[in-house]
């Protein structure tokens, strides 16, 4: 009995030791040299592997940074300037300063504003619905509400709001990786400059139809009247194809355009309330 135990232990030890020796030599033989700084850079990255930088994960980004001669064009949107500063320190380079950004869905066509005129009955993804037709409402530019953006977001920064028909981006969680921007077949999502307290003044509409058509489809559609463009003192607003656009890099958040917009398609967010408190949106169920 005890002999068996001894034999067992002995054989296993021999096998183990020889395997270790073989592995050691194999590892030596096939060793690949890697710049140790890649590991250091990777350590300083957020490690979300979101691909927001345009590379296949954090390691690929770290690899590119180490090999790059300067950091121009390389930016980790999740970590922002702080992380890029650390990366720059490790590599002895200078990082570009970039304004932090946040994503915004430029559509406010919730079901109370945009009446439903047809019923989509295919696989519930925005991409498939968009390939079939303009959407359940008469606005072919607006949000479809099936949440392709929600599906790709790895930071839980999007709330689906199926009952309203338009998702909401939660600024606190959004890291501006840009995945939702690519996922939206209607091209509604824009990465805008992040202002203090996440304040923003945005044209929440992408409708390029003529005013009357747009207005008929949705009562908060931009009709391209141009009032906001005239009102803006900072040249932040441009009108193209019956649609106003506020450049978030130029906007000074004066909010004058908000009050002149006849259709309330320009919205202000996260400002202290003005005289009237915005009323709670009525819930209306849309079938997902």
């Amino acid at each position: 009995m005890s002999i068996t135990i001894i034999y067992t232990i002995a054989t296993l030890s021999v096998i183990g030791t020889s395997a270790a020796v073989i592995l050691y030599f194999v590892a030596q033989k096939f060793k690949v040299y890697e710049d140790p700084r890649i590991d250091q850079v990777e350590q300083s990255l957020p490690g979300a592997n979101c691909g927001g930088c345009g590379f296949a994960g954090c390691r690929a980004f770290a690899d590119t940074c180490v090999k790059a001669e300067n950091l121009a064009g390389l930016n980790c949107p999740v970590g922002g300037n702080e992380t890029m500063g650390k990366v720059a320190d490790i590599l002895g380079l200078v990082a570009e300063k970039k304004d932090p950004r946040t994503a915004f869905i430029r559509c406010n066509g919730t079901c109370d504003h945009r009446p439903k005129t047809s019923q989509f009955d295919g696989a519930s993804t925005c991409a498939i619905a968009a390939s079939v037709y303009g959407g359940e409402t008469d606005c072919q530019w607006g949000c479809l509400g099936y949440g392709d953006c929600f599906d790709v977001c790895e930071f839980d920064a999007i709330e689906l709001r199926a009952h309203l028909g338009v998702p909401l981006i939660i600024d606190d969680k959004c890291v501006a990786c840009g995945k939702c921007v690519d996922a939206c077949p209607k091209n509604l999502i824009e990465l805008r400059k992040r202002n203090p307290k996440d304040r923003k003044v945005v044209v929440a509409c992408r409708n390029k139809d003529k005013g009357a058509v747009a207005r008929k489809a949705c009562d908060v559609a931009c009709i391209g009247c141009g009032k906001c463009e005239k009102e803006c003192k900072f040249d932040a607003i441009t009108i193209e194809n019956n649609l106003a656009f506020i450049d978030s890099d130029k906007c000074k958040l004066c909010r004058k355009c908000v009050s002149v917009c006849p259709t309330n398609s320009i919205i202000e967010l996260n400002f202290p309330p003005r005289k009237i408190v915005t009323e709670e949106k009525e819930e209306c169920t849309t079938e997902k």
């Binding site: 047809s118 989509f120 295919g122 498939i128 079939v132 037709y133």
Partner: peptide
């Protein structure tokens, strides 16, 4: 009337 729309 609200029509149903779906892919073929």
């Amino acid at each position: 009337k609200i029509l149903t729309v779906s892919p073929s």
